[in-house]
Each structure stands twice: as C-alpha cells, then as structure tokens.
Design a protein around this nucleic acid. Structure first.
Lengths: 218, 218, 218, 218
DNA sequence: TATGAATGAGCCTTCATTCAT
DNA sequence: CATGAATGAAGGCTCATTCAT
C-alpha cells in the first residue's frame, strides 16, 4: 500500500545546463538523421530522455532549436580551424595540412555534413539567419591566400591559384563522397562508407591536391 | 432536366500519355525543390494542372512516383554519357572531355543534384530499389580506366591513378558547390550561383584535374 | 463471419451541400455555447456527425468557419428585417412594431446574442472583416428616421428623437437581459430565463418605448 | 569568489499585501481584456511583474483568482451604490439620479462590463459561486420600488412600473452599447466609443427614462 | 517568500490516401 | 478517364499546474 519513491521514474536531473546540453545533442542527432522537416520534436525528446514540453521551455520552437544546432556545428568547425597553424609550415606542407584537416573533419563529423545537407535542401533558410557564420571562413581564406602567394614566390607552388576555389575544392573532395554516399554507392555498386575505401579516398585526395598545386617545369 | 456533358468543365486532355508525362515533370520539380518529405502530392497535382487523385491512378503512391522521378533523372544521365566517345581522343583530351562533360551536366541539371541530395538524406532508401542504376556507371569507369592505363603507357598520364576515385573527384568538384550552394554562399559571403563564379569554377576544376593527372618529370 | 455492411457506421451522406450545412449549424451551436476561443473543432465535428478533417475540407480553418457562422447569423437578421413593412403603418404603430420585432428576434435567436457577445470579447476582430455587415442596418435606420419625422409632423411622436439612438435602445432593452442573463439572475436572485419573466419583460419594454416616443402635452 | 546576495536580482517587494494587490489588479486587466478562457496566467504574472508561481501561492488556481476578481468588481459596485441617497430626493429626481449614476458607472468601469460579459459566456459558472452577490441589489430594488410607489401616489410617476424591470432597463440602456460596442460599431459604421457619441447617448438615455416614468394626462 | 524546472493533456492543423460517382 | 467527398494518423505547439530548491 505504501507508495515508495523508487516506483516512479527518475524525474530528470534538475540540472538545467546539462538538460539543455542533452537536448541539443539529441537535436543534432535527429536533425542529422532526418533533416529539418523529417525531424520529430518528440523523437528529440526521447533521445534526450525528457519531456517534449521541455524543449519548448529551453529553445522556444523547432526553428530555434534547429538554429541552435546549426550554430553549434559551425562553432565546432571554427574552434577546430583555429587550432591550425598554417603560417608555421612551408607553403606546400601548409596546403597539405589544410587538405588533411578538412578531409578528417568531415570524416569525423558526419552530423556537420548531414545538417548542412538539410540546410541546402531548405535553400539555406536558416543559415542566412546566422550572420556570425559569414565571418567564420574569411580568415581561413586569407591565410590560405597568403600561403599560396608565399609558395608562388618561392617557386614551390604554381602561381595564379585562387584561394577560395582551392578551398571549395578541398571541401568538395572531402565531403561529397559522404554527402552523396548512398547514391554513389548504389551507382558504383561499392560501399563508400567502408574503412578501406575511405582510407584510399584520403590518399587520393591528398595526392590530387598536392599535384594540383605543385609547380611544374614545362 | 437532361444533364448534358457540355455542362461540366473540360475534363483535361484525354491524352493519358501526355498527362502522365506532365505529372512526372511536375513531380520532378516538386521533389527537386522540396525533397521527398517536403514534397506535397497536392502541389504536384497543381503543377501538373490535374487532380491529386489522378496521380494515384497513374503512379499508385507517392513512393512509386518518387521512384519514377529517380529513374527518370538517371536515365537522362545515362543517355548523355552514352554520347561521349572517350576512345576517340588522346588520353589527356579524353580525361578533360569527361571532366568538362561532368561539370556541365550538373550545371545544367540542377534537378539531378537536388533529388540526389534528397535521396541521400533518406539514406538511399529508394535508390537501393533501382538495381538498374548500378549498371549505369560501370561501363564508364571501365572506359576511364582504359584511358588512364593507355595514357600511363604513353607517358602522358601519371601512373597509378584509380579510375573510380578520379571519377568521384570529378563529380565532387562539379557538384558540391551546387549541392551546398547556400551554406557555402553564407559561409563565404559570396554568391556561388552567379554566372561569373560558375565560369571561374569551371576553369579551376578543369585545370585542377589536368594538373592532377599530368605526368610530371621527377 | 460475414462482415455485413450494417456493421460499419454510416459513412455520411455524400451530399456535400447538406454536409456543409450541418457543419455550419453545428458550428453555430458550438460557437454560441463556448465562444470563439472556447469552441472546439472536434466538438463541432461531433455535433455535425462528421470527421474533423472535413471541416477543413469545406471551410479551411477555424477562423473561416467562425466567419461563416458570423455571416450566417447576420444574414438571418437581415432577411427578417426585410420582411418588416414600417411604411405601411401609422408612425406609432411602426415604432412599436419594430420594438416588438426586435425583442422577439433576440428572444428566438439566442445564438445571435451569444456569438455577438463572443465577437465583442474579441474586440470585433472578425466582424470588422465582413464589410457587408455595415450595409445591413443603414436602410433600417433610414426608415426609422422617416417614421419618426412623419410622426413628429403628425403630432403623434415627440420631435427630436435620434433614430439610431432609439434603435440602439430597442436592441439594448431587448438583448441585454439575454446577454447578461446569468449575472443579472445571480444579482437579483431571480431566474431571468423563465417564460413568465420574459413575458413581463416584453410588456415592460414595449410600454417603455411607447411612453418614450409618445408626444406629451406639457 | 564568494557569491554574495547583492549579486542576485532584487526578489520583489517583500510586501505580501502589496504583491497580492498588484496581482489582483493585473488579473482584472487581463480577464477584462481577454475573458476567462483567453486570459493567460503568465500574462497576468507579467502585468504584475512577478513569477507565475506566485499567483498560485497567493490565489491557489486560475479559478480562484478569477473569483477574486469577480468579487472585487462587485464590491466596487456595491460600495458606489451605497453612496446614493435616493430617499432624499423627489421621486422623479431620484429616478433620474439612479439612471445617471448607472450610466456613469458603466462608462467609467469598462472592466465591470468586460468581466461580466465573460462571466455570461461561461453561463455564470463563477458568479453562482458567490452568494454574497445576490444580496447586493435587493436593497437597491427595494429602495427604487419605494421611490416609484411614492411618486405614483404623488401623481409624479406613472403607476404600475415594476422596479426590477425598470432597473434592468437602466442597466441595459447604460451597458449594452459598451458591451456590444464592436458589433454595433461595425453594423452602423459609426464609432460608438467616441466621446461625442457617448455624450449624446447619455442625454438620450436619461430623456428616455424620464419620459418612460413620467405621469401622462390621458 | 519566491523561483526555475518539469509535466500531461489537449488543440489546430496537415497529409497521404481511399470511397463513390 | 477523371473527380470531389471523406478519413485516420500524426505533428507542432500552448496552457495550467506541480516539484524541488
């Protein structure tokens, strides 16, 4: 007859910061797995182990939660890029370092690729609401531009390479096979997610970039 | 009292084949613009100027309509690729020809990019149901492999390049800036859809591929 | 074992006009009983014996359904007023005829009173969207004005009475005890909805109006 | 490092009575503006500048808060009516004095009209829980009855007028144009809230009551 | 005294789909 | 061939309210 407390389920943590973090983490997974439209607020709540209502308490709306998730993955990228120290290396090494970093970042952050994909499906509806993002990559492009010019003067690097184009290429070569993994896998009849294929891809991409920037005697 | 037929509104084309084609066309647009989940069966009906019910009449379900759309864009790709004649050119020219074709195909078929993107969001749920797709690219890869080997023997092309990796790179370099147009545009603060940027991108990509496959004197 | 048809519930009438009418009727009751905010779309569906979804099929939204209900009660009022023939009576008789009609209209159309009350709670949010309503009462006021002037000239009616003020008074005297029935009943400890009270009220109101417009020898 | 108390924000007034009063005041506004169903407990908290939880602390529930608001507006009315001194005037003057008082009370207490309206929308659900209200108006009716009888004997006032009916009429004539302001305004295309209209209405109402009770030579 | 955290119930609305004509 | 009528399931969001501090 006694109503012991152990009978009812744990009423959550009473730790707002942690709860908020768990919700964001869950949102990241759900949005990555299903896109904005396909994501279910209830699924996020379940992943976070909390009441759906709580999501509104902390984030206000699905849109705002999505914006928070978007902000978070870009913040992660920015924080990682800041750790790069391109100036310290020789021009060729710096380019390869960036190429490797870019490749590895997308490899180990599939959520970035997924959410970015969803965002593009929506014609960038949300990313355009985050002005801070546009300030993210400009410094990197400037640094890369410096490296290319330095390398060109030193005869190490083919002159005339546009930094932004090169960076877009690095991103393309590093992300597209993840982005389009399923269609490419189906097309080629090969599993592009296998460790072997990914390792081969990394080698190929780095070689391709190296060859592309190298100075050639003609 | 008689209910003569002239009283009711014109009941469409009475041309089943044409109606079916219009629906497929409309579906292509809608799926490309909104993805699978975001596409509305009613919107497709409106685009096609017909009754939603008719879609079920001709295609059975939203899934089947989507499959038809998927099939159609891959058929288009296959048909274009068949027009290529890589064997007729010198190895270097053949590679560049393929690069240019690939770039131009994605540029002029944004629906392919969009629907492909949606498909990957769904983890390839539908593309895996179309076995004919896997037979599409194998011939191309084989041909490209032949070209690369021929070029290597002739000393024109750097040996050891994997055909599939190279082709994935071509696709990546040609499609990713379209696929991720909005996020990249927001990131760089540049409009990646402008004609100028696209033209510069084409030049960059072709040069990059050329440099990557070129044989270098050690 | 046989699944006879009488087992499943009647799948509705397949008579759109009738269905639409039933929904409107149900909406009228529900809105009258609970106001706009308190009305439940599902309750309306149940009253109408149909699926909630059907309401959206025919009316689009709760707002639009409410607008339709509003329109309908005013149309009813207009149609009744048009049957009045004030010009045919002597001025005094015409005024009393209008007073009696007004009293009886509100008595027998409690939905009008209720929905009107709800509308005022919303600061007339919806009534302002129905421009046709403003054209409803102007003719009546003009007619009443004519009657009053005619009566004044004939020495039957006290001169200087403003037609609109008088009409507002008729409405007030006829509607307010319905509108505020519960608070007044509670205040006076009397049931204002009883037949007896209503009958006495009618007599009182008509007498009051009669005395108010009568020409007095001073 | 020490977390001194001056760091956290001022925890409100620490004056329970005042806080309670502010909440009641806020509730009055919110209920008047939105009715019972439309009122938001959080909006009341914001108006009162306090935490929603505090409302529960002081008043228990939304219902109880509403009851308190209801009690308060009727207490205000009772207190005002008690200041009237009908016996001191001549019968006619007394009637007009009451008419003017009633008109002015509703004019200057729109919250009374609004909350009363909301209450009637709810079929008097709450007013029936306040037995003290029914004891409010009985003395007034008795007084008015006395005045009418006195006036009838003196030949000043038409005999046979029922005091309650007359009082209901006064209320109706004074309140209905406020109660139904928006629908009437929309109907007549006139702004019934304008100062001019209200002034003309007052004159009209007083004249109407005067004429209605006046003794006429047959 | 006062407050933020957390919840369960319920509402409007949308969508793909089938029924009957 | 073609269409309007009708439906069940589910989703985002809001609200009053209680728990724990």
């Amino acid at each position: 007859m006694a109503r012991n407390t152990s009978n009812r389920q744990e009423p959550r943590s009473r730790d707002p910061e942690r709860t908020k973090g768990e919700i964001l983490e869950a949102a990241l997974s759900e949005f990555a797995a299903n896109g904005y439209g396909g994501a279910r607020i209830q699924a996020i709540a379940q992943r976070a182990g909390c009441n759906p209502r709580l999501i509104y308490h902390y984030f206000g709306s699905k849109d705002d939660l999505y914006l928070a998730a978007l902000r978070s993955i870009y913040a992660e990228l920015r924080s990682r890029e800041n750790e790069l120290n391109l100036e310290a290396s020789s021009p060729c090494d710096a380019v390869l370092k960036l190429a490797e970093f870019t490749f590895d970042f997308f490899s180990s952050n599939p959520a970035f690729v997924s959410i970015t994909r969803s965002e593009n499906l929506l014609d960038g509806r949300f990313v355009h609401q985050l002005p801070e993002i546009s300030e993210l990559s400009n410094p990197l492009i400037r640094k890369l531009d410096g490296v290319l010019k330095r390398g060109a003067r030193a005869g190490e690097i083919r002159p005339g390479i546009d930094a932004m184009q090169l960076y877009v290429s690095m991103v393309a070569l590093s992300a597209h096979h993840i982005n389009a993994m399923h269609t490419l896998s189906a097309t080629f009849g090969t599993d592009l997610s296998s460790t072997d294929w990914r390792k081969a891809r990394r080698t190929h991409v780095v070689e391709l970039i190296a060859a592309a920037v190298a100075h050639r005697e003609s």
